[in-house]
Design a protein around this nucleic acid. Structure first.
Lengths: 222, 222
DNA sequence: CGCTTTTTCATACGCTTGTTTGATAGTATG
DNA sequence: CATACTATCAAACAAGCGTATGAAAAAGCG
């Protein structure tokens, strides 16, 4: 209906999204003020409320802009991996989920890297801000991958599969959130710029964890 | 030197620590105001600055109170596991690190459960608040466990070990942070109250990931 | 051009934030 | 009892917050 008829500056909306994205990734949601955002974006304070209605509206828009493409690519890769007809390979399924979001790091000039960190953090604190966005955007994708993983690991119960996906998700989220600090934390031992290497290591780690027979005796206590 | 000579009420300090702990776990640091804390603790607003100097002082005290005992127990369990003299078993080492912090959940009446969640979140955003505390309290423990793990997995390079510890740490942190929501997220499939079960599953998962041979070709790019 | 719509801007509003103050009450110690 | 120290309290502080307003500027369009 009503839409952009022109662009007064180089698009205030984009500038706001980019500025918000990087500040949110660095400081978190609550610690990032609209004045900090608008000042970094070199834009008037009122622009946020004009373009996005509220601070919350801006934040949701930051996520929505990136999440859609990533999830589309995930599903495309999964379809390709399963399209072979044969039983899908676990590593390929995991890689389909991991690679698209990891590749955001290449997108540094366009802010993808910074969003990667933001996304990693958000998985830990899905406040009320993002409830609906997550239900609409990520839950369907997660369900699709759950089914695919269950096809790779038919011997696992739903409960067991859920736990292992949870652990794997934690490893992924932590990596997304911390990758920019890893070189420092490891005292130079790790090279996070080797993205393909990181993806392979993570996928191998999670695949092994998912396939383990374990030595546990699972006596579920009532 | 100077210390508590009496306790006017039932110890304002404890009440503040408990109130802060639960609010921080629920809402995060920035979103928790001192007025919310003092009101929950039924204590005067100025008490925070009197007893802890500042909001930051209170927060650091919240962590310090729990972190010390947990890390002591970790080291004790590790010593017991390695004391056998023989080469330590990977699962035992991992369990020594995981079990003490997971057992905080039993401590619900004394706020341990709520701290568990707070700790999980904090691992994602170690802001400047906790820098020194982490350097003093957790880094030495982490180094001890790194050495023990390297003894279990001598075939791994330092780099490879670091990556796998990182992934495992992510799985742990995520579990700590989300355990109170897991029953809901899994639509009832998971029972997070079976703490020993959760520990076993997590330890098995991480142990498998750490031991994987992988099928990767690691051509580190310059 | 003139008219309308979209966008920018400076400014201000009401509210909450963490911290400080100075008075007051309680307890210990000489 | 008197003195000193510890603790609590109500009130106020400046600063920052997200949001709203109304006018000015820019752009589309006949």
């Amino acid at each position: 209906m009503k839409k952009r008829l022109m662009a007064r500056s180089v698009d205030t909306r984009e500038r706001l999204l980019n500025a918000a994205e990087s500040l949110l990734a660095e400081r978190g949601i609550e610690a990032t003020s609209m004045r900090a955002i608008t000042s970094l974006a070199r834009v008037n304070l009122a622009a946020v409320n004009y373009h996005f209605g509220s601070k919350e509206g801006l934040i949701v828009a930051v996520y929505a802009r990136r999440l859609g493409p990533v999830n589309k690519e995930r599903l495309a890769l999964l379809a390709a991996a399963e399209g072979a007809g044969a039983k899908p390979v676990l590593n390929d399924v995991l890689r389909s989920y991991v690679a698209p979001v990891m590749h955001l790091i290449h997108d540094a000039s366009r802010g993808g890297e910074v969003f990667m960190r933001l996304l990693g953090r958000s998985l830990y604190e899905p406040g009320d801000y993002l409830g609906q966005l997550f239900r609409d955007e990520v839950e369907p994708v997660l369900n699709t991958f759950t089914a695919a993983l269950h096809r790779c690991l038919p011997q696992l119960s739903s409960e067991e599969l859920f736990w292992r996906m949870h652990f794997g998700g934690g490893a992924l989220a932590y990596t997304l959130a911390q990758i920019h600090r890893l070189e420092m934390l490891s005292k130079g031992a790790c090279d996070p710029k080797d993205v393909e290497g990181v993806i392979s290591r993570l996928v191998d780690f999670v695949a092994a964890g998912m396939q383990t027979g374990g030595q546990q005796v699972r006596t579920k206590k009532k």
